[in-house]
């Protein structure tokens, strides 16, 4: 089953994902893949074109985001894999600084979710740092529940919104 995995700033990928988002919302399955490579997109039109070291490469081949359980900032096993790939990539392409954006679903109050998003961003940052990414390259920011990627109103959407997204600074936009 294909469903939304990543929103990138790349126009090609956005067009692709816009159609995937619909399928994702209709799907109630909870256990979301963390990168598009797990979706079988690798070698497809998205990934094939990605220049190694580009933000598209990072988003599509590495996976720019991880997901969390409800009201949790624990890094799940699948998220650890994604973050480890991110760390490896970031060490290879060491000119990038990154911002880790923490987000929550809408099942909580605005202020609490700002704090929860911040805690998720910090957890992702700490994991990346533990895998060798210098912490002075990592900035964090929380958007709480203010910037959902999926807007349908059910469990599959909430699980997509509980995320930490690693954004490459100054690399494409």
């Amino acid at each position: 089953m294909r469903r939304i995995a990543a929103i990138t700033r790349n126009p090609v990928a956005i067009a692709l994902l816009a159609t995937l988002a619909v399928a994702g919302c209709a799907n109630k399955k909870n256990n979301l893949p963390n990168s598009s490579s797990e979706l079988g997109l690798n070698g497809g039109r998205g990934a094939g074109a990605a220049t190694p070291g580009s933000s598209q490469d990072f988003t599509v081949n590495v996976g720019d985001r991880i997901f969390f359980d409800t009201d949790s900032s624990a890094i799940r096993a699948d998220a650890q894999q994604t973050l480890s790939r991110q760390a490896q990539w970031l060490q290879q392409y060491s000119s990038y600084a990154i911002t880790v954006e923490g987000h929550s679903d809408e099942r909580g109050t605005r202020e609490y979710n700002l704090a929860l998003g911040a805690r998720r961003a910090a957890a992702a940052r700490d994991f990346l740092a533990s895998r060798g990414v210098p912490s002075n390259r990592i900035r964090t920011i929380s958007y709480g529940k203010e910037r959902p990627v999926a807007v349908c109103d059910d469990i599959s959407c909430w699980s997509q919104n509980r995320r930490a997204v690693t954004v490459l600074n100054g690399a494409g936009s």
Binding site: S73, E111, L114, A115, A118, R119, R120, A121, A122, A123, D126, I141, S142
Partner: peptide, 27 residues
């Protein structure tokens, strides 16, 4: 140094009480 959020005034209007994000992710 970090995110500040959830502000409110004290009843005399002289203070703002708010949350400050700690580096470890707690507030």
């Amino acid at each position: 140094p970090g995110m500040t959020f959830a502000p409110r005034f004290s009843p005399d209007g002289q203070k703002v009480i708010m949350s400050l994000l700690r580096d470890d992710g707690n507030s």
